[in-house]
Design a protein around this nucleic acid. Structure first.
Lengths: 187, 187
DNA sequence: ACATAAATGTACCGATCAGTACATGTTATT
DNA sequence: AATAACATGTACTGATCGGTACATTTATGT
């Protein structure tokens, strides 16, 4: 089946792009490491950028599924779910192949405004924000939109620093800051 | 003088790397855009990576000088200086060529642990953290190290999101979160 | 004026870049 | 067994990659 071949390519390319970066990964490298011929790649994707966009869409799906599922596994009360977000982040940071947020990497390599890749990154951030805003609203926050945006700022900062300085303690620092914010919004 | 030529190269390369990225900028592009011959470049820097490291060292110096100077211009009381950090960030985000933190971009393109570029990024974050920790201590925070780390998490997250989603409102959200943290640490 | 050093232009190196052409295999359906 | 669609390997394109060779020009110090 052609669809599963396509998915296999996107899955494998995702790992390689995440590990090595986008510009640093050539199409010939993808051929070597995926075992999928270049001809097949260009049958499914017109350009390298199209392939990158497909990997970002898959990443968005995988990451949000993982994040939301783990939050819901660790707590059922909405306010408690806001708190355990940072425990889920800690799990993520401690994965041995953690290299920061893939969308932050993509936006660093393709920084021009109003381009497909940066817009995809913005869309990912927007979808995550919506999930957190819903939790904040259910938790009875005075300003759920503001609280959610603030918690997302903590999440992004923690992810960046966990990659640059190593994961030790960062998620705990962010968790404590998040606790303060959540409690002062849900008095 | 050779030293000023070298500095001129580093200054111009810094702008181009920041605008377009590291892998995306070839040495021939630097020749074209700086007007400095490739021969001269390779007399001052053995490799492209050496040039990148020099631009990062310059960026560290320029950014910390700017950040610290502006904080001290906007407030003299240490606790107040912690607050106005976020106003300085807002200024930075609203610069028209703002594209996020250069060290975050560098760590995204060169993500391997224990390499010179990632270590330089970590050093930059460490130096900024020291400045904020000193302020937190002078402000009488109960746990100045923790408060400083938390404020730095807010700073990184705000910078990332200001680039991906645009600067509107982000610095204000981070400022309000910072206000909460500072006040609860300096009761 | 002369010597030394710095900076230059140009042409080149082998390797890799994204992307294509084309002929050959493989697989499934009929 | 025949056909059609998919997948393959290989070889190629022109452009660009990081880096070098070398001869020439420019500027400085005495």
């Amino acid at each position: 089946m052609s669809i599963s071949k396509r998915d296999e390519l996107v899955q494998k390319a995702l790992k390689i792009f995440y590990r090595d970066g986008f510009h640093a990964t050539g199409m010939d490298t993808l051929v070597k490491e995926t075992g999928i011929s270049k001809t097949s790649m260009y049958k499914h994707f017109r350009t390298k950028e199209d392939l990158i966009l497909a990997t970002l869409r898959l990443r968005d799906e995988l990451f949000r599924n993982y994040f939301i599922r783990r939050v819901e596994e660790l707590a059922s009360d909405p306010k408690e779910q806001l708190h355990v977000m940072f425990d889920v982040l800690k799990e993520w940071f401690e994965q041995k192949d953690f290299r920061g947020c893939m969308f932050v990497k993509a936006s660093g390599e393709y920084p021009d405004h109003d381009t497909a890749i940066l817009n995809t990154a913005a869309e990912h951030k927007k979808l995550l924000l919506q999930f957190v805003t819903d939790l904040a609203r259910k938790a009875g926050a005075r300003d759920p939109e503001l609280l959610a945006r603030q918690l997302m700022i903590l999440k992004e900062g923690a992810a960046v620093l966990a990659h640059i300085k190593g994961p030790d303690g960062i998620a705990d620092d962010a968790r404590m800051a998040g606790d303060d914010l959540i409690n002062s919004h849900c008095a």
